[in-house]
Design a protein around this nucleic acid. Structure first.
Lengths: 185, 185
DNA sequence: GTCTATAAGGCGATAGAC
DNA sequence: GTCTATCGCCTTATAGAC
């Protein structure tokens, strides 16, 4: 856990502002000036906390992956032991995270690794580590189809919710449960 | 069909170069200078064919949606009448299109409408029009779940193939068929 | 730690020659 | 139609005052 010293406070304000802007505008369209202005700082001050704009994205992206992982693990902790129930719980957690008003998890959908060449490998590695738990969940299901195909389909569908979700319709929970109904028996 | 006059030839070269760059780098990270250099032109010359960079994206995006629609319709034309078979055919066509080496269709995955505010409404409208045929396909299936949820899941999963597909693994056809196996009976 | 000022260069778009 | 040259603005990142 990050201690809330005065210094971390300002780093945190930068991270929050960067996450919100990266999530809604993407990485390339967001400037360091946008971020510092949103955090109430002068543009030169960001570089004391983060050497480059890419460093800021990497930190935000890591927070985002961690936010999804934390939420999924919390759902899994209270899920029944049945493989199908566990995947449903994980799907609900994942969808909740990428639809959360807090912008960190949204960045992992709105910033595509391939579009940031200098960080692509590191961003993909962060994702991979999170996706490991999905490999296990799906192994336990013993589905009658290619397992990595099923994993990619579920994560792709779950991530896409962010592109069409609107308040007032289905809840994140209902969406996650609806996706789980596509699971093979 | 666009006639291949000398003038269209140069517009086409710009569109091809723009599509390739938007597909791999995204919109904001691609410069007009990148595009004209790839098309073998001087940077000032692009503006004779397209007034702004945004106009170029809109033209590329429309080609991309049309490319997906054409491929899906071709698959549907030779598909059996059964609703489930028709959705499988459409899924194969859609996955083939977004994995095609020709970059136009890939742009609709790598450029998110929300990340281009000045064109977001128009890009979404292009997508919507294409997605209408999916509404019909899924109505005919009479699935035991929310129909628009199923539509978004299938399209989200199909589009995501572009983010993890690698040559040498499964073919686009196998991926489309695998996705169809998740359809409810 | 944050500021102001600025270096050094890239951006989209335009003007006018050819 | 395409070129060269350039306008006016914005970019990331740095330097040095406070």
């Amino acid at each position: 856990m990050v201690r809330d010293t005065r210094e971390n406070n300002r780093s945190q304000a930068l991270l929050d502002a960067a996450a919100a802007l990266f999530a809604t505008q993407g990485y390339a369209a967001t400037t360091v000036r946008d971020i510092t202005a949103a955090a109430g700082m002068a543009s030169g001050s960001a570089h004391y906390h983060f050497r480059t704009k890419a460093d800021l994205l990497l930190a935000v992206y890591r927070h985002g992956v961690a936010a999804v992982a934390t939420r999924v693990d919390a759902r899994l902790a209270e899920a029944p032991a049945h493989p199908r129930d566990r995947i449903e719980a994980a799907l609900v957690g994942h969808v909740e995270a990428v639809l959360d008003p807090s912008p960190y998890a949204r960045v992992i959908v709105s910033v595509l690794p391939a579009n940031v060449p200098e960080l692509a490998d590191e961003l993909r590695a962060e994702r991979e580590h999170y996706e490991d738990r999905w490999r296990t969940l799906i192994e336990d299901l013993e589905p009658p189809m290619n397992q990595s195909l099923l994993r990619q389909f579920l994560l792709g569908a779950a991530n896409s919710t962010q592109l069409w979700f609107s308040d007032g319709g289905l809840t994140p929970q209902e969406i996650g449960q609806g996706l789980a109904r596509l699971l093979p028996d």
